[in-house]
């Protein structure tokens, strides 16, 4: 009998692990990471950012979500960029403007990167809301602005990545 049990025990454990998708080792904090794919290649000689839009779902105070924003310098000279939180010029249907404090919840790993000609840099952007914050909007939007601050002239361009947040 004891021998049978010894044989059955590992089989039972393996069975349970298979049923649960080996989910015993759930990390304490689920921090999604970048997984962007694109169709085709962006131009080398144009300044661009990617992704165009990031959607965060089921978010809650105390949670953290992060994504890498690609910034490409399309100039043939070194350029410095300003990567900053920005209130949106418009929001998606059903979404609200961001809470006033949202500025302090967005962490940008490098907000003034200097890029070599035609260099692409991944910049980590994280949304980290304190656990004690009360957010009344169920859905809200903020933008990450990227601007080449070395661009001269009196007509300049700014590129923005839209971040749409849906709360639990």
């Amino acid at each position: 009998m004891e021998r049978k049990l010894k044989l059955i025990t590992p089989l039972l454990i393996i069975g349970v692990l298979l049923l649960t998708g080996c989910s015993l080792f759930i990390p304490a904090d689920n921090i999604p990471t970048s997984n962007t794919t694109t169709d085709g290649q962006p131009p080398v000689d144009r300044t661009w950012i990617s992704p165009a839009k990031v959607q965060i779902g089921n978010f809650y105070p105390g949670a953290r979500a992060e994504w890498e924003l690609s910034v490409h310098n399309g100039n043939d000279a070194t350029a410095e960029f300003a990567v900053v939180y920005r209130e949106p010029d418009y929001v998606a249907e059903g979404y609200a403007e961001p809470p006033i404090e949202a500025d302090s919840w967005v962490v940008i790993a490098d907000s003034s990167p200097v890029l070599m000609p035609y260099e692409t840099r991944e910049i980590l952007v994280a949304l980290d809301i304190p656990a004690n914050v009360v957010i009344t909007a169920d859905k809200w939007e903020f933008w990450i602005s990227v601007k080449d601050i070395t661009q001269g002239g009196t007509i300049q361009t700014e590129l923005c990545s839209r971040w749409l947040v849906v709360m639990q």
Partner: peptide, 9 residues
């Protein structure tokens, strides 16, 4: 968290 593929320029 999901990102829309593509670039803005």
């Amino acid at each position: 968290i999901n990102a829309t593929p593509g670039w803005v320029s």
